[in-house]
Design a protein around this nucleic acid. Sequence first.
RNA 1: GGACCUGUGGUGCAGCUCGGAGUGCACGCCGGCCUGUCAAGCCGGAGGUCGCGGGUUCAAAUCCCGUCAGGUCCGCCA
Length: 593
Amino acid sequence: MAPAAAGLRTDFCGRLRIADVGRVVSVCGWVARRREHGEHLAFLDLRDYTGILQCVVDGAHDLRAEYVVRVTGTLRRRPEGTTNPSLETGEVELHECTVEVLNAADPPPFSLDSRVETDEIVRLRYRYVDLRSERMQKNLRTRATVTSALRQAMEGNGFLEVETPLLWTPTPEGSREFAIPSRLQHGSFYVLPQSPQIAKQLSMVGGIDRYYQIARCLRDEDLRADRQFEFTQLDLEASFVTEHEVQAFVEDAVARAIAAVTGERPAPALRLSWAEALERYGVDKPDVRFGMELVDLKSVFAETAFNAFRSDAVRALCFPGGAALGRARLDALVERAKGLGAKGLVWMRVVPGDGGGLALDSPVVKFLSDVEQTGLLTALDASLGDLILAVADERRRACEVLGQLRIDLGRPPVYEGPWRLCWVVDFPLFDGVDDEGRPQAAHHPFTMPRPEDLDRLVSDPLSVRAQSYDLVLNGWELGSGSIRIHRREIQEQVFAGLGITREEAESRFGFLLGAFRYGAPPHGGFAVGIDRLVAILAGEENIREVIAFPKTQSGADPMTGAPKPLTPAHLAELGLRVAPTAGPNAPGGARRG
RNA sequence: GGACCUGUGGUGCAGCUCGGAGUGCACGCCGGCCUGUCAAGCCGGAGGUCGCGGGUUCAAAUCCCGUCAGGUCCGCCA
């Protein structure tokens, strides 16, 4: 819990209470605010990470915001009528104070007051100041609470923490890797690991049995609100387990982390197959906190005369209260659907009908029979004032477009509880084909197919299901995992399915395939995105808010100025020459300061 | 690679549609007054290449083009 104060101070600002009245205490911190009342009275709000304490000081002190000071005085109960219920220390104050300025400070570049939302680039440029804010203090402490709970859970389940290399070997395929030039072998490179995937599998061959690591992963892909170049995963792998045991370990760890922050263990995770998630929610990371599920209307429109609905599939959803949307808003929805790849979008308002029933208001209603209209309303369980959105298209596209519209229209902020964990299982082994018609690995090429689907690996690869699974929290993908292939002949079949030749496989993953000859146990694992988990628990929609020193969307660090050009001497030492077309970072190129 | 939004004293905003003197608000900053405040209060003051470049115009923060930076998203993230 709270550490004992030591060194220059006897106490922390935010922890002093009525019970401490009469004690002579020393506190240290930053000047949060001062209120001066002439030459001989001023109030000084002193801030450390625990909170704020009011100190009554002689007005003659030259104290400014963010000065670092040590205050020694006697704690007393505040005079009648001057308590401040909005402070945890609001019943007490420090008086007869001696103030030592440990360090003066320039005025801060922005207010640390939580009421003012400062532009993020300013906060990032002066991140060391921003970190003093209540928000960042709380977020980083939430993060530490989460990682601590995850470690405890993993160790409680017998997992061994093992570190894996940051300087790894290129394994083309997958996400783009950051390259590190070798000084000792010019022209050769390490890469930073996009995850410790292969290393942890090798640890299983090595008899570690249960491995975990709070691991930094690095991917040179474009950044997003929920994606940074470098991010942190709870990475784990276990031997002699089925996917159910892996999921139980993961769910226990995540539930404990949630409980450590919220005080409450979440309900057990739902389980959905990938196919069911797509059918009901139109995405592979369903947000099951709200309804608006997708409905199959194919049977309603089996014989329809409406050409647009004579399609491979007709899916719809019902947006409660959406009939109030104006025409401009509806047109925007149609455009959104087209932007997502749909041929079109049909909207229908549910309005009062003759004789007290329900009717549809839509440009296409004249093409629909009475039976179809009734069937539609029944299938969607629509009520007066709702808006029905329908897409007719190829099945998967219809589902995916409506799934996105469902999120656009109905989704609460990610951090709004309840915490609804959801396993999505039975992913396909391959997901579509590449430009040359070869199947693409949906997860990664070491994922074990379902045994009953093995015989279709060559004849019908796209129908093969994998022993892989994702964990979803409130519509955010928290992580994914799988049972791995541990037998060489299955691995070769999957490589064959992916169009990877024996020679290619040997050059890319030869060391892994070699290892598998020497007694690889059945094994599987998972990785949990800690930044995302913490962001949700901290009530943030952006993982930058739970990372001490994040990068901007263009991959820059406004505080340090990284990335920067290397000196010619440094480049020469690494045996590198920057191509003249490399842009502003090239030697001699323009570069802002 | 693409779409959309944003850029105005240190900070947060208004001004931009419909061009007319850097005009305004709040916080902060500097100076003065003030012995119970807590977003203290009162008085005075300083502080601006309106992101940058070009164009249109008698005249541009405002209209047009380009560019840079930040954000959200698509592509991308096995």
